[in-house]
Amino acid sequence: MMPNLGLKASTSLEQINDRLQYRPRVFEFYTDAHDMTPNGLTHLTEMIKYVRAAGVRSIVIHHPMAYDHHHNEVAVSAIQDPASYQFMMSSSDALIELAVKLNVQVLIHGAYSDEAEVIKAFGSLKVARQVVFDRLDYFQKLGGNHVMIENSTSPVFDFGDDEVERTVMTHHYRLCYDTSHGFIVLHGDNEKLARSIARLAPQTVHYHFVDSMGEFHDSLPLGDGRIDWYRVMQVVNPKATNIYEIDLADQNNCQEMRDSHHYLTQLVTTKQVS
């Protein structure tokens, strides 16, 4: 697979214009709670149309990661935290409706909470997983081919875990595979990462390419971590899209994302020639 130049930005016009000057093939919107207000959704709609008018055909909306200073969590207790539950459901519903209308993709993040938080909210990991899979089933049914679901480092939805992967395959979800999340879950084991990516490749429609040391969420540029990128590129779904989800020194300058694309393109090209 030759990687796409896939870039990510908020709904800020300054960030969007920075990305568009490099003519990305894939564009992912990073949304927040403000984008879910009536005015915010109107602005998001206009920005999607703006990006499409610039020639980008593959557009993804990442659901808001936070609400009221907490993660916007699919694994939220409707009883213990009804406001967060309502935001999670209503924002996902609104984005799926928008995606269907505009023929773009919505990315739902499978989970954020660590095991202690999960057990506090649901009593056990087993119950939490069942709740999350039920909700993901609802989102997938609602949006069909406009919905994808991303893996997490949370044990509720962590690729690399055999039980989670078997369930994901049984439910036939369309997936976004975040390479750093998988690498962290697998404690920096490249052999296991490649096996997990290959196993889920038939259902994976989008990738977050991001490097890591395999210990915690560090969001490194490609080549700065320990992921074996040549091996990864042998097992990804060649029909899938991708972005580079890298921490930026300046949110209005996507230099680290472009550097990562250059690194990966050069690696793949050099190996193919040799």
Rank of each mutant, 00 (worst) to 15 (best):
E215R: 13
H63F: 11
Y138G: 09
V76T: 13
S260V: 02
V164E: 01
H34I: 10
T270R: 13
K49G: 14
V273P: 12
N253R: 15
V205S: 01
R52T: 08
M2I: 11
G143V: 05
R258Q: 07
E14Q: 01
L98D: 02
S152L: 08
D68G: 15
S84D: 07
I59A: 03
C176I: 05
N145R: 14
S212R: 11
D162G: 02
V118G: 02
P155A: 04
G223R: 12
L13H: 04
L41S: 13
Y50Q: 00
Y173W: 02
E165M: 14
V132C: 08
T241H: 07
E115S: 12
T31C: 11
Q234R: 15
H261T: 05
E191G: 03
L220S: 14
G110Q: 13
R135F: 11
G144K: 11
V185L: 06
S274P: 15
K120P: 01
A111P: 06
R25H: 09
V104P: 08
V56L: 09
A83C: 11
Q86R: 14
V127E: 01
E163I: 04
N145W: 07
I108M: 11
D178W: 11
L248H: 15
A66I: 13
Y177A: 08
N253P: 05
K120C: 00
M257G: 15
L5V: 07
N4F: 01
K101M: 06
M257I: 03
D81M: 07
D224C: 15
F87M: 07
T153N: 09
T269Q: 10
T42F: 04
N237I: 03
M65S: 12
Y30H: 13
I184P: 13
D218C: 10
Q140S: 10
F216S: 13
L186M: 03
G55R: 06
G6L: 00
V235E: 07
F133A: 06
I227Y: 09
H261C: 06
L125F: 07
P38L: 00
Q255A: 14
R199Q: 08
S12F: 07
H171F: 14
H206E: 01
A198L: 01
N145V: 03
C176P: 00
M65R: 10
T31Q: 11
V168N: 04
L13S: 08
V26Y: 05
N17R: 15
G223S: 09
S90D: 12
T37Y: 06
P202E: 00
Y50H: 10
R19Y: 10
E165W: 02
A53Y: 01
E115P: 10
R174F: 05
H172G: 04
H146P: 09
H71N: 15
P64H: 04
E28N: 11
T265G: 04
H187G: 06
K141G: 13
V132L: 12
R57A: 03
H262T: 08
E191K: 14
G6V: 00
H172A: 12
K49P: 04
P221H: 04
D162I: 10
F139M: 07
V51N: 04
P202T: 00
